[in-house]
Amino acid sequence: MAKARKVPAIIDNPMSFCPGCGHGIVIRLIAECLEELEQDQNLIFALGVGCSSLLGGGLVTDRLHCPHGRASAVATGMKRVQPENTIVAYQGDGDAYSIGIAETINAAYRNENFTMVAINNTNYGMTGGQMSWTTMPGQVTTTSPLGRDCEITGNPLKFPELVASQFDVAFAARGAVTSPKNINKLKKYIKNGLEAQINGEGYSVIEVLSPCPTNWKLSPLNSMKRIEEELIPYYPLGVFKERKEN
């Protein structure tokens, strides 16, 4: 018998993401994990600014729309005063890694006991597709019209690898939403991250390679193809920091 599948109640609403956007898949996976871990009624989201803000209209949970880039600091404050709640910082790459790199990296540095899910779609989606710190070399965006020149903009940032190699965090992984297989793996990563938090193991981060068909000017299917062919070779999928007890 096939698995019964139903969108979890906390996210069972129409979402205003663009057609083929990966956000909807990721938030559903998070909600599924929270439901399975019986945390869906014990939950606070710290939402980033950008397309992640659009979750505010669909989530049926406690959630705060944080100042741009500060979700990891806000999540820190929440977790410190209400450690019994499961706290999820949900941010895009621009929010988490550019304007919020200080807050993001310092939460990881402190091994703060919450879970961050970072949607990496290699650009600033909400503002119309500007270059982000995860934009690929040569990628054309509205602020790198001739293609990203890494000589003057730096190289794309690999955050899970960074925290896994430099800090004592509980769990760090990268997944993608390109196929059922990758989505199922990603769900395992998200679940591991949340379990790490519930067990008090410390900071967990799951980065997700996610399509932005609108700003990439590609069809949803070709956006997934781009992730498989261009992004995954640079941003490898997998676990960079395993949980200690696993």
Binding site: I44, A46, L64, C66, P67, R70, A73, V74, A75, T76, G77, M78, K79, R80, V81, Q82, N85, A102, E103, N106, Y109
Partner: peptide, 24 residues
């Protein structure tokens, strides 16, 4: 109670925002 030496003034006030959102 919790004391956090924040990485910046910005982070400090945003941590306060997180705690305040929890009604404490």
């Amino acid at each position: 109670a919790s004391f956090v030496q924040a990485e910046s003034e910005l982070a400090g006030i945003n941590m306060v925002m997180g705690a305040a959102a929890c009604g404490v």
